[in-house]
Design a protein around this nucleic acid. Structure first.
Lengths: 345, 345
DNA sequence: AACGTTTAGGCGAACGTTCGCTCAGCGCCC
DNA sequence: GGGCGCTGAGCGAACGTTCGCCTAAACGTT
């Protein structure tokens, strides 16, 4: 009864003492290994349940050298997309009996240099990265080298880290192509933060679609909405000032699309008649804006699950060879892109 | 070099070997304990950094009997409110050097009976509950008894668990009182899931405000929006059918308020002239609906931080005495409740 | 009756720490 | 010059597991 600070938990030795066998035998029974007679097995199990025995996974991982825990380095998960991703990842980890240790890092990326060592101290078996603001963080990428298997939602400098994501180029392509098919010829786009890869890829999709249709690309039709409602609202106004002839706007996410709708309403423009709007992501709210928002559905939840699946398989097989997985996206048509537009170009 | 499955990490013994002292002395230096001469101290630190030593917190917690980790049992954290709460809690834990182990449980509450043992196996020092769907879960509450300090965001049967939350009665009161001050006399309310405590408390606030003003309470003015946009949309239509004379709607959260706005637009009613709308929570989007939504700001982030602070202090002091903390909410006036309404009652 | 083979369970060691005790050496004081 | 009190460092034990090896008894076989 040598008690230190906190109350002692019941250990395998306590169970052993109560059932009159060695603690190693107890361990065997509890893990279903070795050969133990029916009667002692029953006696041990009984004792364990009487005592309320809960195995100590920390002690176990000390000897097995595997914690069956993964670390998750996440950006702000009050962001809808990220949170869906995390839910998917957590669910999959749990399904496979892994614990998830989360550390979030701030928008400015502070905490990033702290997050990794903190997880390593806890001996996680692998790391899942979900913090887009780190995508150009070379220091973090280097720190990750040769530690533990890692999978990332975002790009990681060096290309040594496996990546799971959705096809952002296709996203931009499908959205823009849809507008073109609806008869639009002057199509603006509101992009997210310029430095981000997503932004560039979706923009590339946009240009590709224009090119396919033989439409010119015009810098005046691109503006920056900083991923925010307010940013997109202002960008919409600037765009319409520069190009009053535009008839459609592709916003690089649904949140910004809501800002666009807000701006158009304020300017007295009808959607989709005066101007069509399409977003990306397909957040819950997209179906309930006025008018309901056409969008490109991005499978965040599935991406998270898939990323975790990949990570756990890398842990299991010990494979370190980096893979890149892209999940498909698809078009969801709602009222904001309406029916066929009468091209006036 | 007795390597098992995964690669061996460098341990305190490796550092000791390289600097020619016993590993216990090395441990002392690394923890800043004991008395060690400057020169050996420097030598040890040098060796540790050369080798890239990372302490093993699992081994440490084995002997100290404290993992410096807390468990977080969360509902769906793609829910905005919950995610803000979690961000606040995680941030505070990190600030105090604690790791956070998350397990999410599904909407139906499945996974709840699994979550607790999973955390106990990992020997968390405390548990933070943030899964409103468990608020009547007696089995879970019992399972929590006498294990480890716990703090909850939601009510826990038995009242043995400390609770941190915001003042839901005040929320309903402030919202309704605001509408009354604006001159409204027939005020409807759209509630969330009926069984929930939040729902009941906010409804109580609503009734209190009516009573204050000498207005009658009418069941016909209450309908259920199930916390969802769609639910609130349907509820709004039912309400207006039953009571075409209503001039204001108080939705029990902003998401439902958006559904209300959507319904009113569909019915050709102007906001706030024909009908004023107020929500609760103050989600980001509230400022960008058409018209911008008046609401009651609920401090989710701060609630999370406060809850974690309480939990960690309980862990530190060993105190088990349950506390109830309520954080204040406040009114945010925007266009959806407009200016003074001409009472026609 | 002597010999393999299986079955049931014990035992020591290791995982990476922390902690408290011991002990040698040294300078200091009366 | 003997006792005292530091300082610097070592050592054994413990935390709660898993794992591989060992052994004693029981069994079946010619």
């Amino acid at each position: 009864m040598s008690l230190r600070r906190p109350t002692r938990h019941v250990s395998v030795k306590d169970v052993a003492a109560r059932s009159g066998v060695s603690f190693q035998t107890t361990s065997k029974v509890l893990n279903g290994k070795g050969s133990v007679s029916q009667v002692t097995r029953a006696r041990i199990l009984r004792a364990a349940s009487d005592l309320g025995y809960v195995p100590n996974l920390q002690a176990r991982s000390l000897v097995t050298r595997s914690s069956r825990a993964v670390g998750l380095i996440a950006g702000d998960f009050s962001d809808y997309n990220l949170s869906r991703f995390i839910v998917g990842a957590e669910r999959e980890a749990r399904r496979q009996g892994y614990a998830v240790l989360v550390t979030s890092i701030d928008a400015e990326g502070s905490g990033g240099e702290y997050a990794l060592p903190a997880l390593m101290e806890r001996r996680v078996d692998g790391i899942l990265l979900a913090a887009p603001q780190m995508e150009e963080d070379r220091a973090a990428a280097r720190a990750l080298q040769g530690t533990v298997p890692a999978v990332s939602l975002h790009h990681v400098p060096g290309g040594e880290v496996s990546t799971v994501g959705s096809d952002h180029v296709a996203t931009g392509l499908l959205a823009t192509r849809h507008l073109i098919e609806r008869g639009h010829r002057v199509i603006a786009t509101i992009v997210g933060t310029r430095g981000r890869r997503v932004t560039q890829s979706r923009l590339r999709g946009y240009r590709l679609a224009l090119q396919e249709a033989g439409l010119p690309f015009d810098e005046d039709l691109v503006d920056d909405g900083r991923w925010e409602i307010a940013g997109a609202l202002e960008a919409s106004i600037r765009l319409l000032n520069r190009r009053p002839d535009l008839t459609a706007i592709f916003a690089q996410n649904d949140t910004m699309a809501i800002g666009v709708l807000s701006a158009l309403r304020r300017l007295g423009k009808r959607v989709p008649d005066d101007c069509a709007v399409i977003g990306c992501d397909d957040i819950d709210m997209a179906a309930y804006t006025v008018p309901p928002l056409s969008t490109i559905r991005v499978p965040f939840f599935e991406t998270g699950a898939e990323a975790m699946r990949l990570l756990l398989s890398m842990i299991a097989t010990g494979s370190a060879e980096p893979r890149k997985i892209l999940l498909p996206v698809h078009l969801v048509v709602r009222a904001s892109t309406g029916h066929r537009h009468d091209s006036r170009g």
